[in-house]
Design a protein around this nucleic acid. Structure first.
Length: 542
RNA sequence: GCUCACGUAGCUCAGUUGGAUAGAGCGUUACCCUCCGAAGGUAAAGGUCAUGAGUUCGACUCUCAUCGUGAGCGCCA
């Protein structure tokens, strides 16, 4: 039931019949804000004025005279400067109820993705601490995007890149070791650039509990591995409680062990893109559009962060993905140009990598910005957030906003149970429908799939909104903007609350009641499916 | 100074690849339960879409400049 596509097809066929050459992709069909302007409208006639050098209204008239012949179309007319307003046949609109009910959990699915292989890499926080609020936004976005793209027919792999090698892990190991020494009664020598979070002491304590003081002479590697395992466990648990899971966890250590780094450096060197300066080795990323060249190998002989990361992206490309998506925090934006330049330098297509940047999140409590977590002394953690506002409300809130604006997370609002909390507003619509369905079951009224008696404008408008879901999923997937789903489901809930206030579902007329039940069941299915895509469960009762 | 993002109602935000009279919620005001869940609905008020130019049949949307906010500008990651 993708009506927008149907209308596009009808118009495209009409243009063909009129011998007007125009690519179907360029035909724009929209749902007018004002329903007096039709169920759908198109501006093709205005677009065609330049090509045909004719008055838009005349072109529109011609198109209208042809599309009127379609059985799905009740009426079509020309309005304003040359809009074509299209009204669908009632019978056709109501016949869709059966299809929605039949599709149920699969309603909204499509195959526009053509099973293309997509890799979405997100979160990828270093295992040097606990996940905080900013990563929650990225986790929500990546997970929603993967859900939506899968639903739209892409073959999506969700991936987490673990930076478990390199400098910061050394510091982590040293920090843990020093804390452990402290716990064993020795003198602590915490490094200046060490990790001072409360969880580091927790790790040291855990080692002490398990091994007493027998590990005091262990190599640093022991502490590194223990700490990374320990923190990754917490990270996985926190993400899982937030409703986020991954298909693949790739370790930087493994990438290094595979020899991929040497492979990359060799290719770049052979291309003459590496040069030496100040005892360091540099990559000429400026050749590929970066604003300055970047160091690959530091004067102490170790790699910069960029090197394993290039190797990692090369590895992803070699695994056969058609398209890579990286989700980064806005504080990494300058990193994008050097990453893309490096990929191009290696001879890969940089346009197959899309980096989505998410702007910063602030937490508001009682109208004030909360900077510190009371528990850890650091940033607010994802688990504290889930504990306080619940997984569903938290996920809903992150999914409301588009990625490219800074965001304030209002904790008072998220826990509020009234209609200024959009999560409860939408959930309430779903619970209300479930309640009516329960009531109907008690009264032994069936759900009808065959609508014969309902033909009022409100019901038609509600149903058209339900059908819009198909198109929203597709555009949300293609634009990679999950918040379109959230906006849509809110609108749908609003339309339903309005409908509920005006129309009684269960009446003495059993036949009519069961048809109304069929109608609102489509709304329930749609709300549930939409919420599932953004990681939120739909409550049967509240 | 340079790079990127953002600036829409008192507040928080939408705005469908440039379209018809710029939309919601909160807050304010006035209404609606004998009745399927009032955690809801109806209505009113609220706007120089930051500012100024440009592109065209048409700009909140595209381009440029200016102002403002945030992030970044490392041989950190």
């Amino acid at each position: 039931m993708n009506l927008k596509e149907l209308i596009k097809d009808i118009i495209a066929n009409a243009l063909e019949e009129l011998s007007i050459a125009y690519d179907k992709k360029n035909i724009v069909v929209e749902v007018p804000k004002d329903r007096n302007n039709g169920d759908f409208s198109s501006n093709v006639a205005m677009q065609l004025t330049k090509v045909l050098k004719s008055n838009p209204r005349n072109i529109a008239e011609e198109i209208v005279s042809v599309i009127k012949n379609n059985k799905e179309i009740e009426k079509a007319d020309v309005a304003g400067p040359g809009f074509i307003n299209i009204y669908l046949n009632d019978e056709y609109v109501f016949s869709g109820v059966e299809k929605v009910l039949y599709a149920a959990d699969n309603y909204g699915k499509s195959n526009v993705g053509e099973r293309k292989k997509i890799n979405v890499e997100f979160v990828s926080a270093n295992p040097t601490g606990i996940l905080h609020l900013g990563t929650a936004r990225g986790a929500s976005y990546g997970s929603n995007l993967a859900n939506i793209m899968s639903f739209a027919g892409f073959d999506v792999t969700k991936e987490y890149y673990i930076n478990d090698a390199g400098n910061q892990i050394n510091n982590l190991g040293i920090s843990v070791k020093e804390r452990y020494k402290g716990l064993c009664g020795l003198e602590e020598n915490m490094p200046e650039d060490g990790y001072y979070g409360a969880e580091i002491i927790g790790i040291a304590r855990s080692i002490k509990e398990k091994y007493s003081d027998s590990k005091l002479n262990e190599e640093l590697d022991f502490f590194k591995e223990f700490a990374v395992d320990y923190l990754l466990n917490i990270i996985k648990t926190d993400l899982s409680n937030f409703g986020v899971t991954f298909d693949v966890w790739t370790s930087e250590k493994a990438i290094r062990a595979k020899g991929r780094i040497e492979e990359c450096l060799k290719i770049l060197d052979e291309k003459g893109l590496i040069f030496e300066k100040d005892d360091a080795k540099w990559l000429k990323t400026t050749v590929y559009g970066d604003d300055k060249d970047r160091v690959l190998i530091k004067s102490d002989g170790s790699y910069t962060y960029l090197v394993p990361d290039i190797a990692y992206h090369l590895d992803k490309f070699d695994r056969g993905f058609d398209y890579l998506v990286d989700v980064f925090g806005a504080d990494h934006h300058s990193y994008v140009s050097r990453l893309k330049a490096s990929i191009e330098a290696l001879g890969y297509d940089k346009d197959k990598l899309e980096v989505r940047l998410l702007q910063m999140v602030r937490l508001l409590r009682d109208g004030n910005v909360v900077k510190m977590s009371k528990r850890t002394g650091g940033n607010i953690t994802i688990s504290e957030l889930v504990e306080e506002v619940g997984k569903d409300a938290a996920r809903y809130f992150f999914a409301t906003r588009s990625l490219d604006g800074q965001m304030d997370f209002d904790i008072n609002l998220a826990v509020k149970k009234s209609n200024d909390n959009p999560y409860f507003y939408v959930g309430y619509a779903h619970a209300r429908i479930c309640s009516i369905l329960r009531e109907a079951k008690e009264k032994n009224i069936n759900i009808s799939t065959d609508i014969k008696h309902i033909n009022d404008e409100d019901s038609k408008a509600l149903l058209l909104k339900v059908y819009e879901f198909n198109d929203v999923v597709i555009s949300s997937a293609l634009k990679k903007e999950p918040h379109l789903i959230t906006n849509y489901v809110y609108d749908l809930a609003s339309l339903f609350h309005n409908y509920y206030g005006k129309h009684r579902i269960l009446t003495d007329d059993e036949e009519l009641s069961s048809e109304y039940l069929g109608l609102i069941k489509t709304v329930q299915i749609t709300i549930k499916n939409a919420l599932r895509l953004i990681g939120v469960s739909a409550p049967d009762q509240m």
